[in-house]
Write a protein that binds this DNA or RNA. Structure first.
Lengths: 192, 192, 192, 192
DNA sequence: CATGAATGAGTGTTCATTCAT
DNA sequence: CATGAATGAACACTCATTCAT
């Protein structure tokens, strides 16, 4: 019934392979030929799906970023209170960052590289809107500090990536208690 | 009187060129030949100062990171109160990130890439100790949340890099007022 | 009918080019780019067939050495008498050395360089067995001196390479009469 | 009294270093910088003594070859009988080849490479004259086969190099008895 | 649609040689 | 005489991309 086209399978294999290889040693260690091999595909085939390597990287970024932002709202409901809503979203984002390590590391690398172009970055953030709406509501209700959403993101969401990196480098170990501490810090930074 | 050795001048030119090129297009777009040209030096000369490209990148990272961390304490005194001390350091870090954009962007890229090796990361953080000491004092005095310094860093310092990135991408414009807002968010996230 | 695969043609062109260039100026004057050009192939293509330059040299050595040793027995029959058999093989080896000058010079250079690795040398000698068998038979029959085959080779076969070198350098001219003289010297050195 | 000039000491150190490095991995693994380092001399200094690398190699070849040929006659007297004289010279050559392995291997490599130019080869052989004279005398006396001296050299002297190579590669072990066997083979190949 | 052999420009690196000191 | 930092052309090798099959 719900068949997945062969081409969709290949796309997914290519995304997975790209993420995996880029994580291991950075962009420069993810040649098209290796990506192809890891995805069980011929190098030439990649060019049937993507215009070139730049395009591949951008598309993969969009796909992973979208998965990330969508995950944030998997059980979110618009009628949650601001605090409950934020906690719900934050916990989801943290869960993703700490469990889907491969994807999260890839995003962390992309978010700080000039390799991803601006349109792709925009595209990847499309689905974050509900969080921005929530913050706006919170600001109207006098609960959230009246600052730019970029600032709110910087202090409440972005730090999670740092913690994930440190855990990945085995410098810290994040227990559920630590995650709760982290949430409290995130919340105290943005709440009035 | 204050002579600077010729070799020191070349090292600095190489560091500058590396930072500049890596910023523009990422590591993969900073070939040794271009770095050499930009530093007004022959490609072969780089290898008199650095063992190979990996070593060059690591050393440049250490140098820039050290400049960054040292800048943080340029006018810091150990007998400052915890809050005054933190504000002093934080403002310095922000000043560096927002004024020395080239260096800051380079660091932001390095901090999220697997290209820098662990010993170099360690080396680069050596000079951050006074901040850790301050936090420890703050925790003893019951002023700072009793959490790991990685957590404190994640929520109070790391966000600055995000704000710098956004400003660089011309998505926000950080006025002094915004910087003050940011400082307040940083402080509220770590203070008890 | 007798089709030769395209890849086989390229291999042969590469072997020929390598032999030719190494002969002209030694190993150090046979860059991969020149080998590629002479074989009408792109530099990158070499690496589809050989792991690296070392491997190329070794493989070419094996191929040429094998051709040489096989040529030695092209019309040899095991039931020849020892003397007739030796003469047959010796004349073949001399014919090869003096007619296939390119290949012979290449071998002469390889046999005295530390560039060829031991496994490749072993591999190249595989097909010389019938000569060793003949010598052993000759020793049992009391016709050949009871010394190591290396010694027999040194005095009866190896000198041919020297003569070829001298002819190549135009210091001597080897007429059929000279070749006969040489054969007599070879035989008198190993016969009892 | 018999002082050796500083410059002579350097020349000798350079010769030794060149021989040593070329032996280990061939010409291509003997860069001027390494030769200089091994001879405790600055790279630039080499060019005070030799015009360029080609010249260095040629001169070193001449020097070593001369030492080799001179060694052959260290205790030779012109009034020796042909057979005694040949044995004397042959044994000296064998002694050199088997004891001065470094020099011998270097010569073996040079003798089969197009890297040494013809004038240097000529120069290196200058001192071999007494052997040629002896052979001529032997031919007049009807003791030595009436063939070109190149032929005599090929079958009686050149094989020693092969035996040395095999010993170096640990394929044979040359006891004094073997050396005697070898001498007998050399003699029987050239005597009438 | 898919392949993968072939390409060749481009990379990191080496090294013979020079020259200011 | 001697140095060794500096050079830059040349090298071995890689990899994004193409195209005949």
């Amino acid at each position: 019934m719900c068949t997945v086209s062969k081409s969709q399978i290949k796309r997914e294999a290519l995304v997975k392979a790209t993420v995996n290889l880029v994580n291991n040693n950075g962009f420069h260690a993810a040649p098209m030929s290796k990506i192809a091999k890891m995805a069980n595909v011929s190098p030439g085939t990649i060019y049937l799906y993507y215009k070139n390597k730049q395009d591949l990287i951008n598309q993969v970024y969009i796909e992973v970023k979208t998965a990330f932002t969508k995950f944030a709202f998997k059980d979110y409901e618009e009628n949650f209170s601001v605090e409950k809503g934020f906690k719900n979203i934050w916990k989801n984002l943290a869960e993703f960052k700490l469990k889907e390590v491969e994807e999260a590391m890839f995003l962390s690398q992309c978010d700080n590289t000039p390799m991803i172009d601006e349109p792709s970055r925009k595209e990847g953030l499309k689905h974050l809107q509900p969080l921005l709406d929530l913050w706006e509501r919170g600001q109207k209700e006098g609960i959230i500090k009246p600052v730019s959403p970029y600032m709110l993101y910087a202090f409440s969401i972005y730090p999670i990536a740092f913690l994930m990196n440190m855990q990945q480098r085995e410098l810290i170990k994040l227990t559920p208690a630590h995650v709760n501490d982290a949430y409290e810090m995130a919340w105290s930074s943005i709440k009035i």
